[in-house]
Design a protein around this nucleic acid. Structure first.
Length: 799
RNA sequence: GGACCCGUAGCUUAGUGGUAGAGCGCUACCUUCACACGGUAGAGGUCCCCGGUUCAAAUCCGGGCGGGUCCACCA
């Protein structure tokens, strides 16, 4: 038995400021979103946001979208959704944040001390950071969050490494690797960014015996690193010098002139210098032609003793000095200002250099085809995003470098023995820190040197499916639960996070990591330009949530398709605000009219009044479209069909139509029939709105439906499913015709400047649809005193 | 240079073969017994351009143009 809802329980206005924190706390206390995953669960490989102390509007947008799917599936299955929450707080991004917040430099600190400062700082800022996600109404289980630097993640990451080590999929090699002189670490191909830079193209004269040739270069500071000159084999100007020795100016040592068909005839002078190493093509030529190695800079970006008199200079100073010296010797023949693309490190914007160092790699180049096929096993939403993945994999040039010469990361579970052996930890001793632990497999008195490098942050975030499923604790269970149902993520990290996760799941577990990958677009500024601090066009989501509320921000995020960028226009938030208010008001009205209704309708569906059957049949159809849209990962379509039904069919028409029978029923059954429809339609709609606007729907649900359903929350209720017996063709035809008549009457009243409730003397309708059954409702809705109707083409006359 | 996405009302967009739909904004009217954080109605569109297929094209095909993104280009 339900309690009647009195007027006093239903404030005229919905107070989101009071409601949202209230429900958010309640859900957390009740463990509403707690779920232990099983084979039947819908499992979500949630993106752990990088702790930075602040959520940005793009986060609000994409996390809201993934939450729609979490909530939808929870309400489809009655709670079978595993939606964990984690934060990504290891590696270089965290180090840089801590350095900024605490005004320190990791390079000038003791490693252990710096690691502790990082841990402490994370603990300090994390609660505030996570509260933004809670406030948005994310339905994650916040009681058990993970951090990519916590012991469990470290263990999982190390376990993955050990597994790959045993499978011979990782190797350690000394070779040229992309290096950031700012961050002083190796970086991976995926961490390159491109920027256009102003530079000068310099024509420099080299001597070949008594003859001279001219090369063109943007990087004269690399002359001390020159190991060859290269020309195209068909270039008549230079082919004759093939194999001859060329004198490197200023440094005065000889290098060969080689021929290579990758050199472009038209570019510059057609002759280029090969340095170790200016870019990855240098690395390529160096390798193929077995050239000398002259690495002239230190890890800090200064020139070393190989650069002769230029040793100790920064690259920038060396460039200037070398150009001056070339000028003085008459070898600088010309200079041209150009703009060209330069690879920089995405985390700091520093130009990428190449340094020959020892690094750990995951072997991927030999399985590119397999990785492309793995990508095809996954459903991509939107579909075209798979092409980006495919292109990235097909164009990979290097194996995945996973070691970083940094401090705050997951340590390699690796030691180097005096005996020349490499030792890794045993699985049952993870996590390990090689500085303080010993591998079980090493002889007790063997002297060991710990690996000082840490793993790249992606080496750990690429095992989020294994982390959330507890692969390190119960590998059989985790293996059974792979692949997970869904990975939501941003498009800019397809080449990193998505790719690396696919690599790890394939190599570690022999499966794809997820059945579906769901990719959100960006939020741009109103002009469609990317938001960035330097442009000053950044929107703070917290200010927007303060001004409106989480439901409204979420509703805005529900308006666009997956993968679609959206320009941020504050105006568009008004739509959500309007819908939220309307939902509250319509529900308030309906609930008041249900206060004397206690589920007493026991008749058959076809005994209901025809307009009640109409709205139920419409609702039934809408719920099918809603389910279909969600099943196709088209939340925006689900939102649209629901909103149209709610606004037009339910509010504009059905509520107006049912008023007459509720206020002045001719008999009790007429009223009950309307109440039956009101109850079911409202309940279904509130549930369908719940994934989008979880707070206001919870408020409404608790007023009546929680007791009827016996559920503690709307978010654990079951969404209504399409039912054949409520599909009523005849009622839909009659209903549509009645709506048409009502609209015509409204137009008439507006044209004649009459109020909507102004009485009419007589309503004459001509139509081929039989309106007899709806006559009573038609009269009360239009306030007409008389009614006639005849067969024929549609026409409405009003007196 | 290659690939992908997009081009529909002033703005944001829905619409994949059959008379162009919505929200915001704008105009007029209505303080109507859920709702002025409202309602009702209205104005507003060569569906980027040019060809083709078709009885029929915003939709399919080809070629442009414009915008965005990714990759390559780094001598």
């Amino acid at each position: 038995m339900t309690n009647p809802v009195a007027e006093a329980d239903l404030p005229a206005r919905y107070d989101s400021k009071a409601s949202e924190p209230k429900w958010q706390q309640r859900w957390e206390q009740d463990g509403t979103y707690v779920h232990e995953p099983s084979e039947e669960s819908f499992t979500i490989d949630t993106p752990p946001p990088t702790v930075s102390g602040k959520m940005h509007i793009g986060h609000a947008y994409s996390y809201a979208q993934q939450d729609f799917y979490a909530r939808y599936n929870r309400m489809r299955t009655g709670g079978m959704v595993f939606f964990p929450f984690g934060t990504d707080d290891n590696g270089l991004p965290t180090e840089r944040l801590v350095e900024k917040l605490k005004g320190v430099k990791s390079t000038r600190m003791d490693r252990a001390e710096f690691r502790k400062l990082c841990f402490d700082t994370i603990q300090e800022i994390k609660p505030d950071f996570i509260s933004d996600w809670k406030r948005l109404g994310m339905s994650c289980d916040f009681n058990t969050t993970y951090s990519t630097i916590d012991p469990r993640c470290q263990a999982t990451s190390q376990r993955s490494f050990i597994d790959l080590f045993r499978k011979d999929r990782v190797y350690r090699l000394e070779s040229p690797v992309a290096w950031c002189v700012q961050c002083q670490t190796a970086i991976a191909q995926a961490e390159f960014d491109n920027v256009d830079q102003q530079s000068s193209f310099n024509d420099i004269n080299f001597s070949i015996g008594d003859e001279h040739v001219t090369i063109a270069t943007t990087r004269p500071e690399l002359i001390p690193a020159c190991v060859a000159l290269a020309a195209h084999p068909e270039d008549k100007r230079y082919a004759k010098y093939h194999g001859k020795k060329v004198m490197v100016p200023l440094l005065n040592y000889e290098v060969p002139l080689i021929l290579d068909d990758k050199v472009e005839l038209e570019k510059g002078t057609g002759l280029m210098m090969v340095c170790t190493f200016g870019d990855k093509d240098d690395v390529d030529k160096w390798f193929r032609h077995k050239l000398d190695t002259r690495v002239i800079f230190t890890p800090y970006g200064k020139l070393n003793e190989l650069a002769g008199k230029y040793a100790g200079l920064s690259m920038k100073d060396a460039r200037k000095q070398i150009l001056d010296d070339l000028q003085a010797e008459g070898r600088l023949l010309g200079q041209k200002q150009i703009t060209h693309a330069v690879n920089v490190h995405e985390r700091c914007g520093t130009g990428i250099e190449f340094l020959k160092t020892w690094q750990w790699y995951v072997k991927v180049l030999d399985i590119k085809d397999t990785l492309v096929k793995r990508g095809e096993e996954i459903e991509w939403h939107p579909e075209f995003m798979q092409v980006r993945y495919k292109h990235w994999v097909e164009n990979l040039n290097w194996d995945w470098c996973i070691s970083r010469q940094r401090h705050f990361g997951v340590p390699f579970p690796v030691w180097y023995g005096k005996d020349g052996q490499v030792y890794v930890a045993d699985e049952d001793q993870l996590p390990v820190d090689p500085f303080t632990d010993r591998p079980k497999s090493a002889p007790a008195n063997l002297e060991l040197t710990p690996e000082t490098d840490v793993m790249d942050t992606w080496a750990t975030s690429s095992v989020t499916p294994q982390i959330i499923l507890g692969w390190n604790e119960d590998s059989a269970k985790a293996q059974r639960l792979m692949p997970t149902s869904m990975r939501p993520q941003a498009q800019d990290i397809i080449r990193t996070w998505a790719f690396y996760t696919i690599v790890k799941a394939h190599l570690n577990n022999g499966v794809v990591p997820w059945k579906n990958i769901v990719i959100s677009g960006y939020v741009t500024d109103p002009k469609g330009e990317k938001m960035s601090k330097s442009k000053g066009n950044v929107i703070d989501p917290r200010a927007i949530i303060d001004k409106y509320c989480a439901d409204v921000v979420r509703y805005w995020a529900a308006g666009t398709k997956l993968g679609e960028d959206v320009p941020f226009n504050e105006n568009e938030l008004k739509e959500g605000n309007r819908t939220m208010t309307k939902l509250w008001n319509a529900s308030r009205f309906a609930l008041l009219n249900l206060s004397d209704y206690h589920d007493e309708w026991t008749g058959r569906f076809d005994e209901l009044e025809i307009m009640d059957r109409w709205i139920l049949s419409r609702m039934n159809r809408v719920s099918k479209e809603y389910h279909d849209a969600f099943a196709a990962y088209e939340h925006a379509r689900a939102k649209m069909v629901l909103e149209q039904f709610f606004w037009s069919d339910f509010c504009d028409n059905y509520l107006e139509i049912s008023k007459g029978r509720i206020y002045e029923p001719k008999d009790e059954m007429q009223k009950r029939s309307a109440q039956f429809a009101l109850q079911h339609v409202l309940s279904a709609m509130v549930k369908m709105f719940a994934p989008f606007m979880p707070f206001v729907t919870e408020e409404i649900y608790q007023l009546r439906f929680a007791k009827i359903d016996g559920k503690s929350s709307v978010h654990l209720a079951l969404l209504s499913q399409f039912r054949e017996d409520w599909s009523d063709q005849q009622a839909e035809i009659v209903g549509a015709e009645v709506v048409k008549v009502i609209e015509t009457v409204r137009r008439h009243k507006t044209a004649n400047k009459l109020a909507m409730n102004a009485p009419l003397v007589k309503l004459s309708v001509t139509t081929d649809v039989d309106l007899t059954l709806a006559e009573n409702d038609l009269l009360s809705t239009t306030k007409a005193q008389g009614f006639t109707h005849q067969k024929g083409g549609f026409d409405v006359k009003v007196e």
